[in-house]
Amino acid sequence: MSDAGLRSATADAGDAGFADFFALLKPRVMTLVVFTAFVGLYAAPVSVHPLVGFAAILFIAVGGGASGALNMWWDSDIDRVMRRTRARPIPTGRITEAEAFGFGMALAGFAVILLWLATNALAAALLAFTIFFYVVIYSMWLKRSTPQNIVIGGAAGAFPPMIGWAAATGSIGIEAVLMFALIFMWTPPHFWALALFMKSDYDDAGVPMLTVTHGRRVTRTHILVYTVLLAGLALGAGFTALGGPIYLTVAVVLNALFLRGAWAIWRRDETAAEADGYRVEKRFFRDSLFYLFAHFGAIALDTAAAPFWGGVW
């Protein structure tokens, strides 16, 4: 019996530890939210008091965590089926569905109101919309009804830098839209690569991922097409107000590598992938995380370096 199994056998409702509630917030996703929100706030042309900036990023992260908890509440039935999500707090019985719902709703309200008080109404409204979009539009509606689920649902993960920007400026600039677009276009190839090597997980759970509805060959083609579009966007952004020498250098190198990875995925068939345990797909997935962090890191570095060479471009 697994450790999770032992724990669930002894756990009663309401006896979850602090770590169990923290796990409901999807901490790994939260690192992406925190980092991109920070870059959005930092790259904005309005300086913010460090404590207000810290509070803004904290409340954006809590809002992101709240949507993660509500997603786990709604998806607890399929989380029990999928290998990847079986150890989450609700499937193992450490937290009840009602607890997760209450926790998520309370945190969502808390985060939106406090972001409003700490910064402005636009940032708070964007955060509220993000939580609504992720929980209602993506989790409740799209995820189980269309293979375009992660294409449209990816918007939820793309909002944090825009919220960070709005928290600093009180408006939405073209740079904020470009940062949104970067994450939006990055999400599909990232998740489709995951779907390729998670094999039957989504199939077992009845989630209509592209791999399930249209097959793996089509998914490989989609990864390549979206990666080409992403590369065009990422490189194009380098020549706008968002870009700078560091960003452009990072974008040229990483997009070349990313395109090579997508090409390698497209050229392979299932026999080759199974033979080496989906090595190329797994590497593409791992590299895609670095890809996004590096692009946003470069935006932050260009902002930091701008005073030394008199402007971003």
Binding site: T10, A11, D15, A16, G17, F18, A19, L51, A118
Partner: peptide, 26 residues
């Protein structure tokens, strides 16, 4: 079970304490 309850209470206490400090600073 006691350890889990203690971890939850301690965590909540620390979070509330940190929030008090944050609100004061803000």
């Amino acid at each position: 079970l006691h350890k889990r309850r203690f971890s939850r209470n301690l965590g909540l206490g620390l979070v509330l304490g940190a929030l008090v400090a944050l609100f004061f600073g803000l």
